[in-house]
Write a protein that binds this DNA or RNA. Sequence first.
DNA 1: GTCTATAAGTGGATAGAC
DNA 2: GTCTATCCACTTATAGAC
Lengths: 186, 186
Amino acid sequence: MVNSRTKLLDAAKQLVWDRGVEATSPNMLLARSGVGQGSLYHHFGTKAAWAGAAIAALAADLTAETDELFSAHPTGADRLRAYLSKPRAALDGCRLGRLAFDPEVRSNDTLRAPIRAYLEHLRARLREAVREVDTVDDVDGVVEAICAVVQGGYVTSRLSDDAGALERACGGLLALLDIRPDQQET
Amino acid sequence: MVNSRTKLLDAAKQLVWDRGVEATSPNMLLARSGVGQGSLYHHFGTKAAWAGAAIAALAADLTAETDELFSAHPTGADRLRAYLSKPRAALDGCRLGRLAFDPEVRSNDTLRAPIRAYLEHLRARLREAVREVDTVDDVDGVVEAICAVVQGGYVTSRLSDDAGALERACGGLLALLDIRPDQQET
DNA sequence: GTCTATAAGTGGATAGAC
DNA sequence: GTCTATCCACTTATAGAC
């Protein structure tokens, strides 16, 4: 059996992904984790404590997944293709990006820090890869466009209830980068 | 003097842009509008009523602004350049896009409808413009990428507290489209 | 560590006077 | 149309027993 702290953290990660911080209440966390109220306030003294732990854990997961994906491919073009073709749960939103407009995240630097750090890490990895693609002049612009297309794809998919929107956006960007979606570079 | 209904609607638009629906309370609306509680519940019977009116008004504003911008330019390339170079309050977020992950918007089709309609309208205008650009094969993909870069630029700007992120992302996409940021097409 | 009980404050709304 | 008073559920804890 898993301990209460682990159950709480797992439930908090799911809820923060699903609803954000502002819209998640301690009661929801108790219900989803199956843990008693006493245990919650024993392990995490405040809402910010468990929300912060959940965000930090989500950021660690995403960072690991990103590094794994980049390591699995040798060249910059391969890495960009892999990053932009990777299957994503478009309607669920990005675990971290969905928090951009959460008032409770916005007003608490401790909650925001892991998100900023992940985004910086992603930009750095993308920058290395984009630099290898000769056809690109505006490296920083293209890096930023890649981040934005993914984040924005989640947004437009959700708004139009169409998981395909994110895929099409990524495909469109790949085409503009002149990296074929499903084919190895020479 | 403006009437109470107008004051309420203006305040609701600001609050919905600023905080979303879930995180905005009737009390905040009273405080910002300067109107009494009785008037609020006279003009709008429920929270969904004023939130819906605010969203519909924001959507109407955005649609008008978009049409105005497109009308001001003759060719597809001009229109895309104008759309992607337009000054935006990156840190404030898109008035409608910021609602994509608001639980209260998500669970209420009446609130979502004007947002979906605006996005569809925007896609249609972009599609006309992109079709005029010969170098683009994947029209739908590029249309989707343009929507996503703008929406995602708002997200990454907010997350990194850097208004420049949105601008750089739009600039990067313009470069990939091979439309110069500040120069007329022949 | 976990439980139940309690509580101050807010959210969203209704009632009824003016 | 606008006001004040009131209401019940929920949020975010704290208290203290086990």
